[in-house]
Design a protein around this nucleic acid. Structure first.
Lengths: 338, 338
DNA sequence: CTGAAAGCGCTTACAG
DNA sequence: CTGAAAGCGCTTACAG
């Protein structure tokens, strides 16, 4: 392994001078020396040792992405998360930082990782309030959360207007003549995204004089278990006398649900209307194409990284909390009922 | 920040003793000391500094995942890659290593990252031969490639039988009575996966006395540009007098293609049969459900990591190259033609 | 513009 | 079982 010292010896200068060249502090090095040293670096294929640098500078140049996922679940199987993570990694890289990705199993693992690597900042996906509190307490590096709801003050978060999403979904279904509507979601009601979508949904119903009936709420154990979801689809199909439409909190789930319903022979949207959430690509790949509440993933990723780096360069900068808009995208999965 | 020294001082022992406790070398420490030190570590919340450790041990405990993606493309938007990466990260973590993810923009970036962090090993997705050569030349850490074809000897690679996949697709279409068949793929013909699928496809046709006509080959600029792909779908629909079936090298592409075709009013599979590749979840989310060539992603991820760690623990171990099987999964997108 | 010294937090190799 | 010394490759802070 080639080190600063090797280069210095070959160039007949001190390590400091080489270090200055490597780090672009050219004001401190004579033109001739700089040129000669650069040439030697190039020829010898010198690459600085990041660990040594990190140790000396007390700064690692690493951003961590923390993915919250249920036990043994592959969070990236969810297209929403995958697209988000991919974009975030690109943005981090573009700014000259390295990315570490962690699947959160338990909280200590995460705080440990952050501290052991002396990570500069972190982006969290889908964390809950108690976890957020713990993270904030355990470390004071800049953190940005995505899609979290938290009572922690001074939290940087990028989310969407989930409540409005719920209202839009309900409003659309009502406008299409549906009065009795089911709600399907994963079990994460304990304070997150789903809860707010549900609240918006119920409030909108209420406003139209409809009260949501709790027996119309269906909770899935997980959002990446196709089989379970299809099974629920079949069950819902049997209940089509009870309601004429379903609001589902993700397109991913909606697609499996529809598959399950279909297998019983019921027609969508004729026999049952469905509205999803996210506006993933699959909405257009399905038949009928899925009506859904759209959010802008690219924007979400971009803003998260922007905020993180703003805090990195100005640690005293205020926490920023952004709420992106959502819109209804009408396609083919909701029927007008008379 | 709490350091070994702090703990040592508090415990009234040397840093070495604390270091031994931290690293579980308990044979070198008396029971009482070990217990007391552990208690202090716990209370003070000591976390070892990975950079310092990495520097001293010359070993970082990091595995890099390198994603090859076209300029400005989000590789993780491809569900195949996303699922693979997610599983790989989990397996790496389970073995007590950290994961760095890199999108490959240019080659120097990658070799630089690997060396600067003194990465222990790396997993590469979808690299081409010339790139592979360069990686192998630039670094001698254990590397495992996924889905690569290379003339480099002693390469560890985990792939699937792409050639057979091509044959299976052709055979199925022929068995269903199709004689004139189109081929759609991304532009990566320069030696990879696509080329072998194409070769298998052509050979099988040949064997049945059909020669593939080059004007029936359609190359997309990229595999994640829905608009372009849909446009091609519309074009193909116009050409339905020329061929009655299409073999597409990925389910992802097939789905957009179908969308495009559909928009012109042609029916699938009645007017045009389609067969995909990968067996992603979307195959079942679509209508008609997509007939495809299936591969086992979970297995691919698992084996890649297994091989990598085998090489990590036994650097002299031979390179392993694994070829997983593929199978035809019949669903609804291929019609029997008379 | 240049460099010698000290230090970042850990481990290796050795002496007791 | 325990510890003092040297070193990993870099940077910071200072003196010239």
């Amino acid at each position: 392994m080639v080190t600063l010292k090797d280069i210095a010896r070959e160039a007949g200068v001190s390590v400091m001078t080489v270090s200055n060249v490597v780090n672009g502090n050219l004001s401190k090095v004579s033109k001739e020396n700089a040129q000669r040293i650069r040439e030697i670096i190039e020829r010898r294929g010198y690459v600085p040792n990041a660990s040594a640098r990190s140790l000396a500078k007390n700064r690692a140049n690493i951003i961590a992405i923390i993915l919250r996922g249920a036990e043994n679940e592959n969070t990236l199987e969810n297209p929403h998360n995958a697209a988000l993570v991919g974009t975030i990694i690109q943005k981090i890289q573009k700014r000259g930082y390295y990315t570490m990705v962690n699947m959160m199993k338990c909280r200590e693992d995460i705080t440990q990782s952050l501290r052991t690597w002396n990570v500069d900042g972190a982006v969290f996906l889908g964390m809950f309030d108690d976890e957020i509190e713990e993270m904030c307490a355990a470390s004071d590096i800049p953190m940005v959360f995505i899609d979290s709801y938290s009572s922690v003050r001074q939290l940087s978060n990028v989310g969407i207007d989930d409540y409005k999403g719920g209202r839009l979904a309900a409003r659309h279904l009502i406008a299409c003549g549906h009065r009795s509507i089911a709600f399907v979601s994963p079990p994460v009601l304990r304070t997150g995204v789903v809860q707010h979508r549900f609240a918006g949904f119920c409030d909108e119903l209420e406003q139209h004089g409809i009260s949501f009936r709790s027996e119309h709420q269906f909770v899935l154990e997980s959002d990446v278990r196709p089989e379970d979801t299809m099974e629920l689809g079949r069950r819902l199909a049997q209940l089509r006398e009870k309601f004429s439409a379903v609001f589902v909190t993700s397109d991913q789930i909606a697609s499996y649900l529809i598959q399950g319903m279909r297998s019983t022979g019921i027609r969508i949207p004729d026999d049952m209307s469905i509205i999803g959430f996210d506006d993933l690509m699959i909405c257009r790949q399905m038949t009928p194409q899925l009506t859904t509440i759209a959010q802008d993933l690219e924007e979400k990723a971009r803003l998260s990284v922007d905020i993180l780096f703003r805090r990195l360069s100005a640690p005293a900068a205020p926490a920023e909390s952004l709420v992106l808009d959502v819109t209804l995208v009408e396609r083919e999965s909701v029927a007008v009922k008379r």
